[in-house]
Design a protein around this nucleic acid. Structure first.
Lengths: 118, 118
DNA sequence: GAGCTCCCCTAGAATGTCAATGGGAAAGCT
DNA sequence: AGCTTTCCCATTGACATTCTAGGGGAGCTC
């Protein structure tokens, strides 16, 4: 037994999902299912996007004007909602990426403090 | 006017606060107020820990056995609750740091995909 | 004693993620 | 044809964490 149950804790750090989705869409339009797959593969399975996180994220991002959708047919011939970046979305990606770098750098400074001053 | 109001969005990425607190405590015991100051200074004001986040975090961390407290007097001669790392807390810090590195690396792979395979 | 800084705390709202679930349709298999 | 798998969309309710916005008290300086 001992079901190696995955941590109950959040897998993704809140706030990073939008950035990942936006980034994924810079490769061209894609539908939800594909976006999730891409993030998972590109991260070697470290980042797993649950559907219950993905779709709400896509919806709020569209509501906020970062992405737009149009219906189409997927590679496997199924109805799928293809999302595309808007100019706003591109700006947002730039901003969030900058913020992310900034943030990671700050954390890093705490985790590995630079040589102390005299 | 145009009060450049800071984004309503969360300043800290969820889940990082505990790690920062634990790390801060590796320098020795400290009380809440000092911990917050330290994080802010060490990050050049990038990371600001609000009191409404700090104290609940300290309390739950203590509840989970990662830290312990004892009352004492601060440098400025006021009653203050000094927290200290427990062995569990140290382990937790190691685990969270590993998780963090792992995570940052994964995000990085998506944001700056390595040279594509042939 | 007014005002500042330090130090503790909590309640309520907001946000975002997850687990669980549901549905439907194409593809592949036997 | 029927069955199963995979793909694709979506929502619900629980949960954790953070923030805003409050409250209180005690030492220090003038």
């Amino acid at each position: 037994m001992a079901k190696k149950k995955a941590q109950k804790r959040t897998e993704l750090l809140q706030g990073t999902l939008d950035m990942l989705i936006l980034k994924t869409l810079t490769n061209g339009k894609a539908h939800g299912y594909t976006i999730a797959r891409h993030i998972q593969r590109a991260s070697s399975d470290v980042l797993v996007v649950e559907e219950g996180s993905l779709y709400p994220a896509l919806h709020r991002m569209e509501r906020r004007g970062m992405i737009e959708h149009e219906w189409g047919l997927s590679d496997s011939n199924r109805r799928a909602k293809f999302y595309r970046l808007t100019p706003t979305g591109r700006k947002q990606l730039t901003a969030e990426t900058k913020r992310w770098d900034h943030f990671v750098n700050a954390i890093s400074n705490i985790l590995n403090p630079p040589a102390t001053e005299v």
